[in-house]
Write a protein that binds this DNA or RNA. Structure first.
Length: 890
RNA sequence: GCCCGAGUGGUGAAAUCGGUAGACACAGCAGAUUUAAAAUCUGCCGACUCAAAAAAGUCGUGCCGGUUCGAUUCCGGCCUCGGGCACCA
């Protein structure tokens, strides 16, 4: 055995063992040595985008997953840990535009490289289940389910308002619009209405909301989803009118519907406001050019919600009136830029006295303000011009100036008003959601083709949008296109475009929009369960799902995690699966941060410097006083920019590959697990990596040094143990108990601490010099250390396990039994209890482990500090916490 | 504006049910080893007071208060930082 800790040869040897035996391949319904079925455990990481190489966030994510998987496997679980690739998406197209390489080649090359990096990290991935979402075998099922959803009406086609980049000829996501311009072209972004496909996720709002209760997810993720779904209970009712369209029919049957959570303020309505897209606005604009221009302005403004929120309230009178349903007074209808067409009915009742937005609007356009609720016990009327002097609370207010509703509380009034509307047949209690339907059409090449064929065009009457017949799936995406930045290259591919209409057989045109990549990631984790299944999923999916533990970044708290939950509910309703939530437990790992440094030129322009190139000046306590570039003779000042998320723009990223090359996969894993608990932010520390490496070297050197004496020792303990042996076992088993607890609650940083404590205890024991400890006892203790450490540091422990011949008793470490705590070893004959006087620590006392409360009390009272404090008096009170402390209140 | 989460040494952090605050590390300081350095090993390492030293004491988990024999932990109020949502009627 080589003496030095040569991580290269150690890790190569371990990886070779694992690979040759295909040890990570798992099967359904696995049984243990006794033939009993093992419990299954499905632990999975959010699949990576194959961007080129792994970053530290990946390393952290997959190490957490791997530690969990390896530990549970030793505990007897049948553990599935698969991996795949979120392989469709924009970066591949952008790389293609830059390098003139087809996105497919770029993507597959990246996958190959990143896979190699994962092997170097020693991840226990079952690669036989690998899924790449750009493979036709996978995305055909996106298309298949899309067709099923069309049949059921869950998917539908409509015209949507989107961000349109007129130079790049494509839709942009909100985050790709910077200061109103396309991020790539710099062109002013337009709002444009174009047709696309939508999923009716709003129909699932209620189950998506209520399903959260049963999930073992972080509270804040659940709260974020709750807020996103945005349930609110209120009253939907109509103002009647007789405004007719060009054909003489009343618009919307003469009913202007609005939604309100404050029906108790109904008598304070002084106007109505409708969205720019509302039919009444269109009607009024028909012969009012000024209004038409205003509506146009509203429509072309930014669609970014943060901009909308800060925009000044503007509006214009339509000249139209509707009738108040209770007072029958005429109510003027305005167009308001703060009214959203997509929420409720695109119209609101205006109550300036009790709604901040309506108040601002009324003040600006000089509309009447009518107060109808007041704090209980007062009924002030005032004409304040500051919103702060008004109020909109629901608690402790009563109606007044409100005819039959006078004196009612908020809740009473809402019910009473709703009842009144029901009687009139114009309204009722209604629940409205903030959630909107999911638009999945993208004018992009590198994605799942939407399986639709367009027959005829807008002017003639063909068959319209015809679904591709199931037998013709998959609609295969040509992989050899090279996008050039001028729109979707599929529009130039006649071999793809020109097809026959499946209905009438006439020439037709294939849909060139592709699906949002969030569709791909909504169910990939189920394809892992049967990557070669002849159907979308098969019976293997029922064995593995629902997933026991999902691990990924908090940035997916809403989008991906909501879409996947929706998708699962759709599949359940189509009887494809029997469960209705995909992810039982969720762990959101923290970000990886690093120090930032920059220099500033005369104009104040910052140049971000790589932390590797900067050296710190420390004071005598090790506090940083300043910084400069390494080897910079001119001493140009370097400014310490603080700790931030690793990113290209701040030049503070650390390449995992260089870490693995320089220290090995085990050190990388150990550092990442030890530096912080999984859910917290992790601060990079070069010195911390050195420390991790040093610890591993100590484990290796110590174990190697004892290997000769331990190799042939017995794995059963002698019946008579010396006091030193008993004490050693007590310490090691106490730490093991703590480590087991920490594994179970996934606090891996303290698991590493436990291993360090064990080594600190074992290291001084040299069998060749120490007669008090026998080989079998040390052999047991070291086996515990190796097993506790193994999930975090699999390579080195795997090799040591073999070298020390633990395999002869336990088999390979991968499936060795997890060490159990010997409760008998924990028993102490004498305990040390802390002694408090008036709650302050004043020493300790030794008592027999089996002493009664009374015995402990009297021993405590006899102690010197107690005698001194009591000074002959008897104590007011004595508190004994068994096994812990005695507190004497003097 | 609304809704979450977090504040502990020079640093990362720990403390399971309210019971020795700072485990385990990193950095730093001192020493051993070495021709020297690196590496390695040993010791010290929250602040303050009093000390020659040993010791002893006071304070200390963002701030102010409360409950309790005892509070990092529970309750009330505030401050700061981070995140999410943001004209949702």
């Amino acid at each position: 055995m080589s003496k030095d800790y040569d991580y290269r040869s150690i890790e190569a040897a371990a990886q070779a063992d694992w690979e040759s035996a295909q040890v990570y391949q798992v099967a359904e319904n696995a049984v243990d040595a006794q033939g009993k079925q093992k419990p299954k455990y499905y632990a999975c990481s959010m699949l990576p985008y194959p961007s080129g190489k792994l970053h530290m966030g990946h390393v952290r994510n997959y190490t957490i997953n791997d530690v969990m998987a390896r530990q549970l496997r030793m505990q007897g679980y049948n553990v599935l840990m698969p991996m795949g690739w979120d392989a469709f998406g924009m970066p591949a197209e952008n790389a293609a535009i830059q390098n003139k390489v087809p996105p497919a080649k770029w993507t597959y090359d990246n996958i190959a490289y990143m896979k190699k990096q994962m092997a170097a990290m020693g991840l226990a991935i079952d690669w036989s289940r690998e899924v790449a979402t750009c493979s036709p075998d996978y995305y055909r099922w996106n298309q298949w389910l899309f067709l099923k959803m069309l049949e059921k009406g869950i998917a539908y086609r409509k015209t949507q308002v989107v961000n349109w980049d007129p130079i790049d000829q494509t839709v942009l996501a909100n985050e790709q619009v910077i200061d109103g311009r396309g991020w790539r072209s710099g062109a002013l972004v337009e709002k444009r209405e174009i047709p696309g496909y939508y999923f009716n996720i709003t129909a699932y709002a209620e189950p998506l909301l209520s399903g959260l209760d049963s999930l073992g997810w972080p509270e804040r993720v659940k709260t974020m989803q709750q807020n996103w779904i945005g349930k609110s209970r209120g009253v939907r009712f109509a103002f009647k009118h007789d405004i007719a369209d060009d054909h003489g029919n009343f618009i919307q049957d003469g009913l202007l519907y609005v939604f309100t959570t404050r029906a108790d303020t109904i008598m304070g309505v002084t106007f109505c406001a409708v969205a720019a897209e509302h039919p009444l606005a269109a009607k009024a604009a028909a012969n009012n050019p000024e209004l038409a221009a205003f509506i146009e302005k509203c429509k072309t403004g930014s669609v970014i919600e943060a901009d909308l929120a800060t925009q000044e309230k503007e509006g214009m009178f339509t000249g139209l009136y509707v009738t108040h349903p209770l007072t029958h007074e005429p109510v003027p209808v305005w167009v308001g830029n703060y009214v959203l067409m997509s929420y409720g009915d695109g119209a609101v009742m205006g109550v300036p006295a009790h709604d901040e937005r309506d108040f601002a609007f009324a003040l600006k356009y000089d509309l009447p303000i009518k107060q109808v609720i007041a704090l209980k016990g007062e009924s002030p009327m005032f004409n304040a011009t500051r919103w702060e002097d008004w109020y909109a609370q629901k608690e402790g207010v009563v109606c007044f100036n409100s005819a039959q509703f006078d004196g009612l509380s908020h809740e009473e009034a809402v019910s009473a008003v709703a009842k009144e509307f029901e009687k009139l047949g114009i309204g009722e209690i209604k629940t409205t959601y903030r959630l909107r339907d999911w638009g999945i059409s993208r004018q992009r090449y590198w994605g799942t083709p939407i399986p639709i064929i367009h027959c005829g065009d807008e002017s003639n009457s063909g068959c319209g949008a015809v679904p591709v017949p199931e037998a013709d799936l998959p609609v295969v995406l040509p992989e050899d296109c090279v996008p050039d930045g001028s729109g979707n290259p599929l529009n130039k591919r006649t071999d793809f475009l020109n097809v026959k209409c499946p209905k009438c057989g006439k020439p037709a045109r294939r849909e060139t929009d592709t699906m949002d990549t969030f569709v791909d990631s909504s169910w990939y984790f189920m394809r892992y369960t049967g990557p070669n299944a002849k159907t979308m999923v098969d019976e293997r999916n029922e064995y593995w799902m629902p997933m026991d533990q999902y691990i990924g970044g908090i940035e997916h708290a809403i989008l991906h995690l909501l879409y996947a939950r929706f998708w699962i509910k759709v599949m359940r309703d189509l009887n494809l699966i029997t469960f209705d939530e995909p992810f039982q437990n969720l762990l959101t790992q923290g970000m990886v941060l690093n120090e930032t440094y920059y220099s500033e030129d005369a104009s104040g322009k910052k140049t971000w410097l790589n932390p590797l190139d900067v050296e710190l000046d420390l004071d005598e306590k090790g506090r940083p006083q300043g910084a400069k570039l390494i080897g910079d003779a001119s001493n140009t000042p370097v400014i310490i920019g603080g700790v931030e998320k690793m990113s290209k723009s701040k030049n503070n990223g650390v390449d995992p590959q260089s870490l693995i090359d320089q220290y090995g996969g085990d050190t990388a894993r150990l550092f990442v697990m030890f530096a912080a608990p999984p859910e917290q932010q992790l601060e990079w520390s070069g010195a911390g990596v050195d420390g991790a490496s040093r610890f591993l070297r100590r484990v290796w050197m110590y174990s190697s040094s004892q290997a000769g004496a331990l190799h042939d020792a017995s794995d059963s303990l002698p019946s008579n143990l010396s006091d030193a042996e008993k004490e050693l076992r007590r310490e090691v088993h106490t730490i093991l108990k703590q480590a087991n607890f920490d594994y179970q609650r996934r606090q891996y940083n303290t698991v590493v601490s436990a291993a360090m404590k064990m080594l600190n205890i074992l290291e001084p024991i040299k069998l060749e010099q120490n007669a008090a400890i026998s080989a079998p006892v040390l052999r047991e203790c070291l086996s515990i250390l190796l097993r506790v450490l193994y999930p975090v540091v699999p390579h080195m422990t795997h090799v040591l396990w073999k070298d020390l011949a633990y395999t002869k008793t336990y088999g390979p470490l991968l499936d060795a039994s997890w060490p159990s705590v010997d409760e008998a070893a924990l028993v102490q004959t004498e305990l040390t209890l802390m002694l408090q006087i008036n709650g302050k620590l004043r020493g300790d006392i030794k008592v027999p482990a089996d002493a009664s409360k009374e015995q402990v009390e009297s021993l405590a009272l006899q102690s010197e500090p107690a005698q001194k404090a009591l000074n002959g008096n008897s104590p007011k009170k004595v508190i004994v916490v068994p096994g812990r402390l005695v507190n004497i209140v003097a």
